[in-house]
Amino acid sequence: MEQFLQQIVNGISLGSIYALIALGYTMVYGIIKLINFAHGDIYMLGAYIGYFCMTHFHLGVIPSLLIAMAICTLLGVIIERIAYKPLRNATRIAVLITAIGVSLFLEYGTMFFVTANVRSYPPLKGILTQSFKLGNIVITAQQILIVCITVILMVFLQFIVKYTRIGKAMRAVSLDRDAAELMGINVDNTISFTFALGSALAGAAGILVGIYYNSINPLMGILPGLKAFVAAVFGGIGIIPGAMIGGYFIGTVEVMVAGYGNSMFKDAVVFAILILILIVKPSGLLGKETKEKV
């Protein structure tokens, strides 16, 4: 039982990271129906930016986090403007290939500058090195930090989407882009803003994963990116609470499989869940079935 609870704690920590990445996927998919394969690489860049902030500029965790988020935001917007915006009316597959191109560019561009070597995050100081015991369950300060930051960011995101003008615009554009445009919404800016939000969250996830796993490399974004996408699909793509639930679910499943089964198969289980959910309920946990009107 205790081991089970311990796994839950670990699962929630990992799930937080997946949830943060999944949010970006789900928002971008919701608004322009693009599986943004480059999203996982924004997360990787977030990890690297955090790394440099902490090692070269000796900044603390929170300032590094904010800087990583800011730079990732900027990158997200630039990528959207250069690579995706000109393809607004192209076929879906063309945009998807572009996204893959951007993804490769970020991965191998980063590799060119920082080499393919794995780097380890600088050791944390002070309270962040501690861990707490609840009975026999160990909760580290890092895990608390990860979950707290994730929750704060999610609340902040919900606030933006639900209660601000731009959030309303985002929801409008994702429902019907043409109608939104006719209602005077600046669709391009809204899309850029969506990329900005998603990228900021991915940047945050990157630095958190650096702290948690302590090692980063230029290709680290691929698999978590895919899994976060699975999380988004699981919860119902385009639905923000769905991405959060999906993230925590996938994180927990992965930790459980690694803990009780064969850790080599943990990724296979995640993908098997994906295929299963797609077959049973393609619209995801919270999604509504939509049928094409004839």
Binding site: I35, V230, F265, A268, L274
Partner: peptide
């Protein structure tokens, strides 16, 4: 089973399948 899925969903399902094979 998966070909009932449309567009992107099928893409992701086939991606998942290939990953499972690889693993």
């Amino acid at each position: 089973p998966t070909l009932r899925l449309r567009g992107d969903y099928l893409a992701i399902a086939t991606l998942g399948m290939a990953e499972i094979i690889r693993i």
